[in-house]
Simulated scan of single mutants.
Amino acid sequence: MQPLLEIQDLRVSFHVRGGEVQAVRGIEFHVQPGEAVAIVGESGCGKSVTAQAIMRLLPQPPARIHQGTIRFQGKDLLRLKEREMQSIRGKDIGMIFQDPMTSLNPTMTIGRQITEVLNKHQHMSASEAKRRAIEMLEMVGIPHPASRFSQYPHEFSGGMRQRAMIAMALACRPALLIADEPTTALDVTIQAQILRVLKSLQREFGTSIILITHDLGIVADLCDRVLVMYAGQIVETGTKREIFKHPQHPYTRGLLRSLPRIDRSKDEPLVPIYGTPPDLAKPPAGCPFWARCSDSMHICQQLQPESTAVSGTHSASCWLLHPMAREVAK
């Protein structure tokens, strides 16, 4: 099956006063039609930069896309003119941003912000756009959608604002939805509601989803595959079962060990990942995780590990997977 989205050797940097920060360093992945893929990793690893590069929302300068391709439905988005890209944003690719309060326009009603997308991409009349917007508000679970249509963002709660963002992102039935931390700062009850909305909309419309998150619990509930990012690179990829049950990269194992779990013994302590990520203005020559890895070897400091296939769907970039590497406890 032809991938809906395919990214190859994407490299993005930011030119700042102190030099050049290499935020994304040669990542490659794909998303199939109807698939939900998670991108996980700690803050600053390049998750949101990747999403904004797909949407072509990075200001240039200071950002610069050095090389790579982003193919969506066969088109390389990096080669399109801005006018062509505007016809794709919101229509074929929708995006839910981290903070709906700063993403929504405080001077416009919620209804107007949704109908604006429909007017631009679907060329609907005012009455048709209003009807579709109210349907979308009802679909994402906002009570009394007809009256809420005329309200402003400050009149909505945090969870309702996020639902309004989802309604706006899905108004044109996009083929791909990028959800950048869609449940950040929401309580667990609202998080569960947002996840139910995303899953039901994925089933109804067949929408592919890229979920960017820190919360591995959300990943287990919603996604099919997981990409683990660290220091601007994808260090492990696999199905959610492979990542949760048989993690191969020390960073992935560290993430899972540092999470509280209901099946963990009360006497079993959480194990943090000690140290800090590398400075991406001066990235290390070898594995970016070697300084924080208890199993690092001399070669880890010198050479970047290549991606090693563990199965047909599971791979990791770690020298411990090399046939000549020593055995370590996992």
Rank of each mutant, 00 (worst) to 15 (best):
R11G: 05
V16R: 14
G18F: 04
G19R: 07
V21A: 03
A23V: 06
R25V: 01
G26N: 02
I27D: 01
F29S: 00
V31N: 03
E35F: 11
A36P: 06
I39V: 14
G41L: 02
E42A: 11
G44K: 10
C45N: 11
K47E: 07
S48E: 11
S48M: 11
S48T: 15
T50E: 08
Q52G: 03
A53K: 08
I54W: 07
M55K: 08
M55T: 08
R56W: 04
P59A: 13
P61A: 06
P61Y: 09
P62E: 01
R64F: 15
R64G: 07
R64W: 12
G68V: 08
G68P: 10
T69I: 05
I70M: 05
R71H: 10
F72P: 06
Q73H: 12
G74P: 14
L77N: 01
R79G: 14
L80M: 15
R83G: 05
E84G: 05
M85T: 05
Q86G: 15
I88T: 00
G90S: 02
G90H: 04
K91Y: 13
K91V: 01
I96M: 00
P100N: 07
T102L: 07
L104S: 00
N105I: 00
M108C: 09
T109V: 02
T109A: 02
Q113F: 03
Q113W: 02
I114L: 10
T115E: 10
E116M: 07
V117W: 02
N119G: 14
K120I: 13
K120T: 14
H121N: 07
H123F: 08
A126G: 04
S127V: 12
E128A: 15
A129T: 09
R131M: 05
E135Y: 07
E135Q: 15
E135H: 06
L137D: 04
L137V: 11
E138V: 04
I142A: 04
I142H: 06
P143H: 08
H144P: 02
A146R: 13
R148E: 12
R148K: 14
R148Q: 13
F149Q: 13
F149M: 13
